[in-house]
């Protein structure tokens, strides 16, 4: 690749070296593929950590709302409404600035406040997002189990914990899997904004690669292919799981 200080005009002339039909530089595409691909572990790591955080948060909120615990139900409702309404990128920046500014005591933040790692901010953002959506999915799944099932379990002498563990959970998991998959895929797609806080995952790498020689189309096409492969793989895995679980009944 080009090194050093080529002027913009030079780079741009290079871009048009095949004349007006220089649509797509295949050589550049092939050459840059591994570089963009190197962002995959970070994207997957962030997504997995966020979805785990989301599952914990979602279970907590769903439990609070099902049990209808005074005060906490209200807080959960406000939280879910907020997380579902505010764009991810805005949540990302709110969390990004919150800790340093609030710990700095007001005098010129940045240097004096506590700094937290961008990865942690990203996981918190997507964890909140996933938690809000998953709590709704979990709640709907819980209510989708017929109340006759619960009564039947009690009538054969199961304790309430056994009923929950053996009767409700297996059936609820089955009905919430499609929603879970779509939240998971949304989280993976959503992580494409974290380059804003200098995390170089797939999209960040694509931007870096694209900015060299102003070949954004090639770089973004690589990212698109990678995202599609990841999302399809996850979709197929969970579809299999869904089929596997539904065979039991």
């Amino acid at each position: 690749m080009r090194e050093g200080s080529a002027t913009y005009a030079e780079l741009y002339a290079d871009y048009h070296e095949f004349g007006a039909i220089a649509l797509f530089n295949t050589a550049f595409f092939k050459e840059s593929f591994p570089q963009v691909l190197s962002g995959v572990p970070l994207t997957l790591g962030l997504s997995l950590a966020s979805i785990l955080a989301g599952i914990i948060l979602g279970l907590l909120i769903a439990a609070i709302r099902i049990k209808n615990i005074f005060f906490f139900t209200g807080v959960s409702k406000v939280f879910v409404s907020f997380s579902r309404s505010v764009p991810l990128i805005v949540i990302l920046y709110v969390l990004c600035y919150a800790v340093p500014q609030l710990t700095s005591g007001g005098g010129g933040q940045g240097q004096s406040g506590v700094q937290i790692s961008p990865n942690l901010i990203a996981i918190a953002t997507f964890g909140l997002f996933a938690g809000a959506y998953l709590s709704e999915a979990f709640r709907a799944a819980y209510y989708s189990v017929d109340s006759g099932q619960k009564e039947a379990a009690i009538s054969v002498g199961l304790s309430s914990f056994q009923t929950f563990r053996r009767i409700i959970v297996p059936q609820a998991i089955r009905s919430c899997l499609p929603n879970f998959t779509s939240v998971f895929i949304d989280v993976i797609k959503g992580t494409s904004i974290v380059y804003n806080i200098s995390i170089f995952e797939i999209m960040g790498k694509a931007n870096l690669v694209g900015s060299r020689g102003y070949r954004y189309i090639e770089a973004y096409s690589i990212a698109l292919i990678i995202y599609l492969v990841i999302c399809f793989t996850i979709y197929i895995i969970f579809k299999r799981l869904e089929l596997h679980l539904s065979k039991k009944y």
């Binding site: 007006a20 649509l23 999209m203 189309i217 973004y220 698109l224 995202y227 599609l228 399809f232 979709y235």
Partner: peptide
């Protein structure tokens, strides 16, 4: 399927940068 697997940001950028070039041909 394509739309469900494409991040919105990427779609936006691809259309903004790619569509004019594609139609140029």
């Amino acid at each position: 399927a394509l739309m469900r697997g494409t991040p919105m940001l990427l779609l936006l950028l691809l259309i903004y940068y790619g569509l004019p070039l594609l139609l140029q041909s």
